[in-house]
Design a protein around this nucleic acid. Structure first.
Lengths: 160, 160
DNA sequence: TATTGTTATACTCTATAACTATA
DNA sequence: TATAGTTATAGAGTATAACAATA
């Protein structure tokens, strides 16, 4: 039987569920991250689009959406905005005219550079006082948690 | 000079910024967490309200909002829904008639129990294959990251 | 028929501003 | 004046469903 948390009068202070703690930490960090990006003239989804475009050859919208982990319609929504703001261009694929090939404009490149600066700065701030070793351990545990979260639910709750 | 990540043709594969990785992990876990709560008939903000009510004597809305980390108006929104669903009751304070004292109804207690079950199950699943020692290290690092994220930005970017 | 993307619509969570009622 | 909470409104991010164009 594993060590559990509990609430109310059942027991004195007990550890918060790890999922909730990470969700909470994630929200807090996301908020700060977003503020850093907003101050630099962008947003989190925009940044994700930009790095996806810079990193590899994900130029079809389908690939970008998959890389970011959002639905195609949601991506369309963001790309509309980014295109209206002049950060990206879209053109139909020559081979397959259904596909839209996305590319950065010079303004988009500038935005990327600006956001990259904000990201680096934020990352430096976050890592203050945390050793490389500790950080590596963190990454390993996070990876494991993601795997566990995505794994099947197993026999814990047989009914329903 | 610290080890940095980078993108595009500058360098081969490099680690993702830790802030982004946590934000990503947080989103993924939040999503699963939410699905677990939804399947049990609740939601994340509802759960946060419930544990806040169960944990201590945060009965004034102001305190609940502060404990959860949302604005008062946002809490009002959630409480409206929870009251309409019969999970909580509100009554004006006897001493200070401006305040609303929130309490769980029997249905609210049942919801709490149901959600607690879902949370425990999810937590067990998440912690699979992670030692107590590793988990403790994770919590310490997360705490440090939250502190760092909330800390002043320091001299990294002197301009602007 | 299947795939790529768009449009229309809606939901959740959040926030700000203006307001009511108490203190 | 200050505080507790509400109402109205809005915005960001997300999703689903129905659709058009192309394969």
């Amino acid at each position: 039987m594993s060590r559990h948390f509990c609430y109310g009068a059942l027991m004195p202070a007990s550890p918060e569920p790890i999922g909730l703690e990470i969700a909470r930490t994630g929200r807090a960090l996301s908020r700060e991250f977003n503020e850093a990006l907003t101050a630099a003239g962008g947003s989190l989804p925009q940044w994700l689009v930009l790095i996806t475009l810079k990193q590899g050859d994900h130029r079809m919208q389908r690939d970008i959406a998959a890389a970011i982990g959002i639905e195609g319609a949601t991506l369309t929504h963001h790309l509309h905005r980014m295109e209206a703001d002049g950060f990206i261009r879209r053109q139909r694929g020559a081979g397959d005219r259904r596909s839209q090939l996305v590319e950065l404009t010079p303004a988009g490149e500038q935005l990327f550079t600006r956001l990259l600066g904000a990201v680096i700065e934020f990352d430096d701030r976050l890592r203050r006082g945390i050793s490389d070793r500790e950080l590596a351990a963190l990454r390993r545990t996070l990876e494991r948690l993601r795997t566990n979260a995505a794994s099947p639910h197993e026999s814990t709750s047989p009914t329903r």
